[in-house]
Design a protein around this nucleic acid. Structure first.
Length: 822
DNA sequence: ACATGTTAAGTTTTT
DNA sequence: CTTAACATGT
């Protein structure tokens, strides 16, 4: 039996309580009672059941919105386990997000009980890849302890590469290079495989070279970025057929969630594993919905799902079209809309539920009125007893959020922003982690650089440059370079002492690490480094929140067996600890809403240019339009009972007011499923739904020709929120130029606060004149030249340390990497 | 080394 | 209009 070590390596260790008498128990009973169908199949509809029971061979499950996708996935795993087709460690189940993985684990736990213990290979592409790579790191020239770089580290490293290459960072920002390289990695292109034209487009033809250099630096640092996790796994599979064969053999059943979101690299990764020699192990089940593919812009290939039957010959396809979420009108509206797309496999959602409310479309004069209308509707529903937790506002771009937030703040409606900065992206968390990373692996330059002057120690650019120069020349990590430099007079006395102290601190902490629990260690480090003190002294509004976050960090640290696994968890898994207190309206982008559902969904901003977004149209043409339409489809199908679409005739774009016209998507909605609210009399309903092309909508208004819907709906001023707002002394509503805008939006605070300190990256001098380390090439009496101290002659040689009598500066101790022979 | 003023730029986001 | 990175001044 292979994989006896599987359980130990399981990263997330959720403590779900297995239910007694789960499927396994029932399966045993079932087996005895012969022909009774296993109980876990109860309540599945015929298609779902087919998807669960078709265990052998490639299978594509096209699961429309709200058709019980997760249920099928989890039941299928339960079915495989309970029928004894495979052990938990022989099932590979891949998701995109940790959230999805966690949910799946939990639900399988509920279904199967203790039998599911483990599921060691259930996780995200990245988490599973990491696990693979740690086991076989040496085969792809990494050490098993490699660090995973997040976007922030990535950019910092690219800055270094750009500087080393002498590329002007103004013209060619590191951010852009990062996107470019990410794009290549999404398509599984190694530096050598980058099409010449694409590499040439960056930094005067140096794009490809920079990519290669970046990869080299990663290897030197024993690090991998997110893309590498997949790419290196693919390389491992390709270059080590025996390793690949082993995993092909092990994974008897493979399941992939959200298959429409896979990129080329993920597709290759899957295909390698799914195309083993033994046909009995080619049991790949992909679940997805081509109509919900909304991540094309970040490398997802809808084509993967469209081509499934071609890629995996003999594949069966099961369509789940029975929707259990939304009422009839909502489904009709969404279905008609998405039917306009050409590149799709074709599905039609249906429900046995009643028609329910029609999709409401409301026009507003401008975006402020739009926000007001949404706010009023929320309050009206609330007054009727609807819970705020069952309502969501879904926007196309996050810039739309501010206005909505402002309005909600004014009305005193509690809300929560979904998809803000993640916990681990917060400055204080990243800082704290950098300290721990330095303790665990002193060679982690990126971490060292981050905290070397945080809190402020008076170590500025000048000092850092000296450190870098020597580290670069001697090809050693920064911290090691620092250890040499404090022995010399290269540094000014003050920074020299500071660094010496810092090094002593790290020495102490490393020693402490071996005998302390990691939580204690973290507390010690954060305290002694002065980091917590820094925030305690900080009188700004966010400071206390940051201290809380640090406490939370220390607390969660204790849940892990060791520091190493914690650091991995944070870079791969950690999420915002959302204060889930009380009922709140959810506010998020359409992208963030995928997979969620609400009774009532508000969809503001349906205007040409904003939605469909002009940029998507410009950059991707028809494909872009279709993706926007899928986004609209996702938005509508989030609603269980009520979907409300809004558009404004005027919207501020980059500060300027622009006249806007309603989205073509509005015209694409079927008349039968839609009702128009608060529309002024001048806008008749006739001819609506004829799709007369965009720009011709019945909702068009001559800019300025309309006085605003507020006047047509005076009753809305009687809402509790309006009265509250009045009572608080806010100005008249009217057209809203009365400058309310209460400052403290949660979202704004969170975002602004999370920004890094923006310290300029380290400076690496142009040439990579690598002088091999070891014994110094200088001897007593040599004439040399030093950048800072000028000419002099060598008086003493001690390894790479030289004592030099300088002509002007007198006797100094310096490192040989800083002097040149003359 | 740090605070303050100036300027440029401005979808969607996970791992 | 807003925000963040940059440049300048103390």
């Amino acid at each position: 039996m292979q994989g006896s070590d599987d359980h130990s390596g399981n990263m997330a260790a959720p403590a779900y309580a297995p239910k007694a008498g789960g499927i396994a128990a029932r399966a045993r009973q079932g087996a005895m009672a012969a022909h009774t169908p296993p109980s876990w199949l109860d309540g599945l509809n015929p298609e779902q059941r087919l998807a669960v029971e078709t265990t052998e061979g490639p299978l594509l499950v096209l699961a429309g919105a709200g058709t019980g996708k997760t249920r099928v996935l989890t039941t299928r795993i339960a079915h495989i386990l309970a029928s004894g087709l495979a052990m938990p460690s022989q099932i590979l189940a891949v998701t995109f997000t940790n959230k999805a993985a966690r949910e799946m684990k939990e639900r399988i736990g509920h279904l199967v009980g203790p039998a599911a213990e483990g599921m060691p290979w259930l996780g995200t592409f990245h988490a599973i890849s990491t696990k693979l790579l740690r086991r076989h790191a040496e085969l792809v020239s990494l050490k098993p302890t490699f660090t995973i770089l997040d976007t922030d580290d990535q950019i910092r490293l690219m800055k270094q590469v750009l500087q080393a290459e002498g590329v002007d960072e103004k013209r060619w920002p590191a951010r852009q290079l990062a996107n470019l390289i990410d794009g290549w990695k999404n398509r599984a292109l190694s530096p050598a495989q980058v099409p010449a034209g694409e590499g040439a487009a960056f930094a005067n033809g140096r794009g490809g070279k920079l990519y290669a250099m970046y990869q080299e630096r990663l290897k030197t640092l024993n690090a991998a970025d997110f893309g590498d996790l997949l790419l290196e796994s693919i390389r491992l599979f390709r270059e080590q057929p025996d390793v690949l064969a082993m995993y092909q053999q092990r994974f008897r059943y493979m399941l992939v969630d959200e298959y429409q979101d896979t990129n080329v690299a993920q597709y290759l990764w899957l295909r390698l594993l799914a195309q083993g020699r033994d046909p009995a192990h080619r049991n790949l089940c992909c679940v997805g919905d081509d109509d919900q593919s909304i991540y094309g812009w970040r490398g997802a290939e809808v084509d993967n799902i469209l081509r499934f039957e071609h890629d995996f010959p003999g594949a069966q396809v099961v369509r789940l079209e029975r929707n259990y979420r939304s009422t009839g009108h909502i489904l009709t509206a969404a279905s008609e809309l998405i039917a306009r797309n050409e590149g799709r496999l074709g599905k039609r959602l249906r429900t046995e539920d009643e028609d329910g409310e029609k999709v409401a479309i409301t026009g507003a004069w401008d975006s402020e009125e739009e926000a007001r209308l949404v706010g009023e509707e929320i309050e009206a529903l609330q007054a009727k007893g609807h819970s705020l937790g069952d309502m969501a506002i879904l926007v196309r771009i996050s810039a739309q959020m501010r206005e909505m937030e402002d309005r909600l703040v004014q009305l005193g409606v509690p809300y929560r922003v979904i998809g803000g900065p993640r916990f681990y992206e917060r400055m204080e968390i990243r800082d704290a982690m950098a300290y721990l990373r330095c303790v665990v692996s002193p060679a982690d330059d990126l971490a060292f650089e981050r905290i070397v002057n945080t809190p402020k120690r008076g170590l500025g650019d000048a000092t850092l440059q000296v450190l870098h120069a020597h580290a670069r020349a001697a090809r050693i990590p920064l911290m090691e370079a620092a250890r040499y430099l404090v022995e010399t007079e290269e540094l000014k006395p003050k920074p020299r002492k500071t660094i010496r102290d810092l090094l002593a601190d790290f020495g102490r902490w490393s020693a402490a690490a071996t005998r302390m629990r990691q939580g204690e260690l973290a507390e010690l480090v954060l305290e002694e480094s002065g980091y917590t003190e820094m925030w305690r002294r900080d009188r700004s509004a966010e400071a206390s929140g940051r201290l809380d976050n640090l406490k939370e960090l220390v607390r969660s640290l204790e849940e892990f067996p060791d520091l190493q696994s914690f650091l991995e968890h944070v870079s791969l898994v950690m999420e915002a600890a959302d204060g889930d207190t009380g009922e709140r309206v959810s506010l998020m982008t359409l992208h963030a809403a995928k997979g969620l559902e609400f009774d009532t969904v508000f969809l503001p901003g349906w205007e040409e240019g904003l939605f469909p977004n002009q940029r998507a149209l410009d950059e991707s043409g028809r494909a872009g339009l279709e993706e926007e339409r899928r986004l609209a489809h996702v938005g509508i199908t989030r609603a269980r009972k009520r979907a409300r679409i809004y558009f404004a005739s005027n919207r501020r774009i980059h500060g300027l007011w622009n006249a806007t016209i309603p989205s073509r998507f509005i015209d694409e909605l079927p008349e039968s499923a839609v009702e128009v609210l608060d529309a002024p009399a001048s806008y008749s309903y006739g001819g609506y739904g004829q799709n007369n092309g965009y720009g011709q909508s019945r909702f068009d208004r001559a800019a300025g020709g309309y006085a605003g819907a507020a006047e047509t709906a005076p009753s809305s001023y009687a809402t509790p929120g309006w009265q509250r707002a009045q009572a608080r002394g806010f100005g008249q509503g009217g057209f809203g130029r009365d400058g309310y805008g209460a400052g403290g939006s949660q979202f704004a605070a969170g975002r602004g606060g999370a920004r890094g300190k923006g310290k300029g990256g380290p400076v690496i001098e142009g040439e990579l004149v690598a002088r091999s380390t070891g014994a110094s090439s200088f001897s007593v009496g040599d004439r040399i030249f030093h950048q800072k101290f000028g000419p002099g002659s060598v008086a003493l040689v001690d390894g790479n340390k030289l004592t030099v009598d300088f002509d002007k500066a007198g006797r100094k101790t310096v490192l040989d990497s800083f002097v040149e022979a003359t």
